[in-house]
Design a binder for these strands. Structure first.
Lengths: 221, 221
DNA sequence: GTGTAATTTCACGTATTTTTCACGATTTTT
DNA sequence: AAAAATCGTGAAAAATACGTGAAATTACAC
């Protein structure tokens, strides 16, 4: 479990990190909302522990921004006495919240509850979200700005493979071998044609599929 | 696992070396911060055990200096009673700390925790860092002071090959054979032109590519 | 079988990349 | 000190890779 801890106070982060790692999870840290949003755009986390009060970009705004791009469970941390707007929090998709100062037991219990809930949900349909591009591998669905993209079988396979290997350079040979199969003895340029079709179907999100001249392609944010 | 032990006391170094080697790791030693920084510039270590109090250059300053160039996990060693500034340590990127006197169990547990954490992180995207030059071979990205350098295919290949063989003298013939391919029957000086282009793109880090007159080139820090 | 959708091949145009080569600067050898 | 070798560089020529559209082939449902 990869858990992102967002708080401007180092000591709080360290305490949370200890709880998180004690339970066998990986902890990542961000000092403010800005940084958290940036990290979420580039990486996938299973849970976010987000402080409400932070410099640059507050917790609410950060969550709102993150939820636009990725569907991650969030637990908000608020100091006692801080005005905590439950209704608003619920609207932007906060899963739970704890008030500082918190006990280890309390935090761990909530983390476990949320992650368990989420893994149960994810086993059914894990939907990856890259800006307005949503990819549901299990359900074999791709949505571009909310509308379903009608892809051909090869296009699905190709896209899913690229996404599973996002950030990694893939040669045409490797793509042919892994997506088409080891027994494909055809033209390299077949890949290009499918990339073309795929890009056409992804509309503006064609930008995620970058050409690596002299090599092949990769999926990158 | 190559582990660098930095402490001015011989006895401490010996004890740590025993722990480290008992777990099947390679131990290296430095007597002070200066020496540690120098060794890190020239070699790659998987972990550094760094004492806080040392002559010439203290542990904090040494870590700060090392982190500028390489991303290595660090465990700080501090004597009980010594004022240990956790906040500062965290800021400069210290992964963990133990207070002397320490038990073998404690040290080993922390070493294992940190190395495990770090290898897990690296498996995703191994990004090499040489001062302000970052190289992500898997993602085919090169960053010069944070900004992406747009290299041509041959420039990527050449740079990656040089880096993979860093510190080793490479003749034009070897470069042509390994980077261009065994079936290249062209001019030797082709290499020079590509080195020129590469240097231009690496800006100030052109210095890493050194010319070996009468021989060829090599990548060196 | 037939028709439709999907896949693959291929050729063209364009933009980029690679290579060659010659000149001048620098270093080494005679 | 002159001659020879080596290297950095710029520019031009040659080669290559990619996007695209269209045609050919294959797969599959009915």
């Amino acid at each position: 479990m990869k858990i992102l801890i967002v708080d401007d106070e180092v000591m709080i982060r360290n305490v949370l990190r200890e709880y998180v790692e004690f339970e066998g999870n990986e902890a990542y840290e961000a000092e403010d909302g800005m940084q958290a949003v940036k990290m979420c755009r580039e990486n996938d986390y299973d849970l976010i522990l987000m402080d409400v009060m932070m410099p640059y970009l507050d917790g609410y705004s950060a969550v709102k921004e993150i939820k636009k791009v990725k569907d991650v469970p969030v637990i908000m941390l608020s100091a006692r006495g801080e005005e905590y707007d439950k209704l608003f929090a619920f609207e932007i998709g906060v899963d739970d919240y704890v008030t500082k100062p918190f006990s280890p037991k309390e935090v761990m219990a909530r983390i476990n509850a949320v992650t368990k809930r989420h893994t149960a949900k994810e086993q059914k349909n894990e939907i990856l979200k890259f800006e307005g591009l949503e990819i549901d591998m299990a359900g074999r669905n791709v949505y571009v700005d909310g509308v379903k993209a009608e892809l051909t079988p090869k296009e699905y396979e190709l896209l899913f493979y690229l996404v599973r290997n996002k950030g990694i350079a893939l040669t045409r040979e490797k793509l042919l071998y892994d997506v088409w199969g080891f027994d494909f003895y055809g033209d390299d340029r077949t890949v290009d044609t499918h990339i073309k079709m795929l890009r056409g179907n992804l509309k503006e999100y064609r930008k995620f599929i970058v050409t690596l001249r002299g090599l092949g392609y990769k999926f990158e944010l």
